[in-house]
């Protein structure tokens, strides 16, 4: 069985834990509980005729209060950069975080998840921003941990990239 470590990255309260909970356990809670350190979950994902076990490292959100320890990143095969679509600044933070992650992990598969797609009418991240990300070579997917939109697809998509890598 192929096993791959995937890091959930992004600033605080963007929905990293909620995405993992939705994907692995199929549940969602509106209560915000900050993650300390890391929580690890795993799920087997079928990709084509193969199966890959994703080890999901749900890392604490980096913000002005807490910086991410690079030690958590070691051995990661892929990552999600999670952004809260309703807070434009979380996209800038995520991209900034990625430059640091890139120096540790090098070039590995990664996807930007624009989370909170259920609140699309309140998004501050605009089509223009998404266009720029696509131009820069990013795969960008909208997700909603709340209603599940795009969540399964996002993880399956990354799993497929990991198998191809």
């Amino acid at each position: 069985m192929i096993q791959k470590k995937v890091c959930m990255l992004g600033t605080s309260a963007v929905g990293k834990t909620s995405l993992v909970r939705r994907f692995v356990h199929g549940i969602f809670s509106d209560t915000y509980l900050t993650t300390i350190g890391v929580k690890i979950d795993k799920k087997v994902v079928p990709v084509g005729g193969d199966e890959v076990t994703l080890l999901l490292w749900d890392l604490y959100g980096e913000d002005r209060f807490l910086k991410l320890s690079e030690r958590y990143l070691r051995g990661a095969a892929g990552f999600f950069l999670v952004v809260d679509g309703t807070r434009r600044s979380t996209l800038d933070d995520a991209l900034q975080l990625h430059t640091r992650v890139h120096t540790v992990l090098g070039e590995i598969p990664g996807i930007i998840l624009l989370n909170k797609a259920d609140l699309r009418q309140d998004w501050e991240v605009e089509e223009e921003d998404i266009g720029h990300l696509a131009e820069a070579g990013w795969k960008v997917l909208p997700t909603s941990a709340k209603n599940g939109m795009g969540v399964e697809d996002a993880f399956t998509n990354l799993a497929a990239q990991l198998l191809d890598a």
Partner: peptide, 15 residues
């Protein structure tokens, strides 16, 4: 090690 979180059967999180 770094800190990590484990969740028990009752949903309680242990650091």
């Amino acid at each position: 090690s770094e800190i990590w979180t484990e969740t028990d059967a009752d949903g309680f999180e242990w650091l």
